[in-house]
């Protein structure tokens, strides 16, 4: 069963258009959402979280349309953005104390577990944390309420190779527990390392939304790595 289904999303801006974006995210799978800067990854994720209003298309979570079931759906999903941080001068402990009030599934035991796993000091403020640690705080908040689907915008951007590796290991672990992990990135090696499915977006259109092996079989030429394939496609083969 699809955990998240995105169908025909479209949004027109003066200088950019998201066109007919469709893909599905499955439980117990890691889906990498890849595309260069400005390809439409964040716009798609914003539409998936109802932060922007698409001109066309729908998003369903757990077979429920997002519009009309937003409150219930948001109880069951987690999100993280690599670029935004919340309340830079408030302590993590205080932010978590507020967040926990909104989730009926909040688990203090899990909160403590991830606090320890990520080596986070809850007495610190986001301002005192590195970019990588901020991503971990967002993830910790999402995981502490047992999110069944994680929607993560560029979680690995700004992370050092060690932290990136740790994060990708965590994705693998969450996948084993049945969580649907969806993350956007422009770092192809992240996708190569852990994704089961690849959703590739270019200039606001989905080029491919396939299992990783199928993606390589359909789009890669002999001897090409995923990175070579992407670079070739971005250089112009898409228009060929």
């Amino acid at each position: 069963m699809e955990t998240v289904e995105v169908r025909g999303l479209g949004k027109k801006y003066p200088s950019f258009e998201l066109r007919d974006v469709s893909f599905a995210i499955k439980a117990g799978k890691i889906t990498g959402f890849i595309g260069r800067n400005g390809a439409g990854k964040t716009t798609t994720i914003k539409a998936m979280l109802n932060l922007i209003h698409p001109d066309r298309g729908e998003v369903d979570y757990f077979s429920l349309p997002l519009i009309g079931n937003e409150t219930e759906i948001k109880q069951r999903i987690g999100y993280s953005t690599g670029t935004l941080n919340w309340y830079p001068r408030k302590k993590i402990r205080d932010i978590a104390a507020i967040v926990r009030r909104f989730y009926s599934t909040w688990d203090d035991g899990l909160y403590r577990k991830y606090l320890e796993m990520f080596s986070l000091d809850e007495g610190k403020t986001p301002l005192e944390l590195s970019e990588g640690m901020k991503v971990k705080v967002n993830l910790m908040l999402a995981l502490s309420h047992r999110a069944q689907a994680l929607i993560l915008d560029e979680p690995t951007s700004g992370l050092d190779p060690f932290s990136r590796n740790e994060l990708l290991d965590l994705f693998e672990q969450l996948k084993k527990e049945g969580t649907a992990v969806f993350f956007s990135t422009h770092i192809i090696s992240d996708i190569e390392r852990c994704a089961d499915q690849i959703v590739y977006i270019s200039k606001g259109r989905i080029v491919a939304a396939l299992e990783k092996a199928e993606f390589a079989a359909r789009l890669s030429e002999a001897g090409e790595t995923l990175e070579d394939t992407m670079l070739r496609l971005e250089r112009g083969d898409l228009n060929a």
């Binding site: 932060l51 937003e70 948001k74 109880q75 999100y79 935004l84 919340w86 830079p88 967040v99 909104f102």
Partner: peptide, 16 residues
């Protein structure tokens, strides 16, 4: 506004 409060709030499981 500086703390991205509105986006944080909208992402909580509550109606807009």
């Amino acid at each position: 506004r500086e703390a991205n409060d509105i986006v944080f709030s909208v992402l909580l499981p509550i109606a807009k």
